[in-house]
């Protein structure tokens, strides 16, 4: 899926939510990125341990932060993880986690492309 047709972030909407403060939005994106990896590794452990309550909680938190930044795809896959945790269903959680990681990579690529364009 190309970034142009379906960007991982609805930047203008995210900007609106942060009061049109670009610097603050960038700060939030950095915060999201630095938090993401630790949540994912906790998720991997939770899936291994079949800790459904934790899967639900982590999916819920990721869904919330993705939604705040208008990261539509990441929000959707986090929601799938949350739902899988709620339903005590491991398979969909594993699948959604894989998609989540892929979407995160796509988001990082998108950001570096944007940076290169600006430079």
């Amino acid at each position: 899926m190309t970034h142009e047709k379906n960007p991982p972030i609805d930047y203008s909407m995210a900007l609106m939510r942060t009061g049109d403060d670009k610097e603050f939005l960038n700060e939030l994106i950095d915060l999201y990125i630095s938090d993401f990896n630790s949540r994912v590794s906790q998720l991997e452990n939770a899936i291994m341990e079949k800790d459904y309550a934790l899967i639900l909680m982590l999916g819920h938190t990721l869904k919330g932060s993705s939604s705040n930044l208008c990261l539509t795809g990441l929000e959707e896959f986090s929601f799938q993880i949350e739902r899988a945790g709620r339903n005590n269903n491991l398979k969909p959680a594993q699948l959604a986690l894989k998609l989540l990681k892929g979407e995160f990579e796509r988001f990082l690529n998108f950001l570096s492309l944007q940076k290169r364009r600006i430079a």
């Binding site: 939510r17 942060t18 700060e27 939030l28 915060l31 999201y32 938090d35 909680m57 938190t61 919330g64 932060s65 705040n68 930044l69």
Partner: peptide, 9 residues
């Protein structure tokens, strides 16, 4: 809030 983004906002 456990979500750092939401907390920061």
């Amino acid at each position: 809030d456990d979500d750092p983004v939401s907390r920061k906002i």
